[in-house]
Amino acid sequence: MMFFGLFRRKKRAHSRKEAKDRLDSIVTGRRRSVPVQEVIPAELLKSSETDVVTQIKGYVAQRFKVKEENVKVQFEEHNGYVVIITNVVFH
């Protein structure tokens, strides 16, 4: 019996179906096209950088009742986009 067991192939589910389902759930909707009007030229941001920082600091300070100097606003480039990062220090 042991000898014949060597040649017996154990049946198992094929993994393609599972991979397909997982891929569908990961990828579907993740990559959406960004309409051109959603992309703001970088020059526009540069010209109003100080104003943006002042307004964000003012809003966050008022919203969380913190001092403006405890609100830090940074502009960082990630993957070709400028991301505005706001740090609020809570006591």
Binding site: A19, L23, I26, V27, R30, R31, R32, V34, V39, G80
Partner: peptide, 18 residues
């Protein structure tokens, strides 16, 4: 394989956005 395909998807999105 899934990791390569999902990364490719991300790259395609970046290329289109560029």
């Amino acid at each position: 394989e899934l990791p390569a395909i999902t990364d490719a998807d991300r790259v395609i999105g970046l290329l289109e956005n560029a």
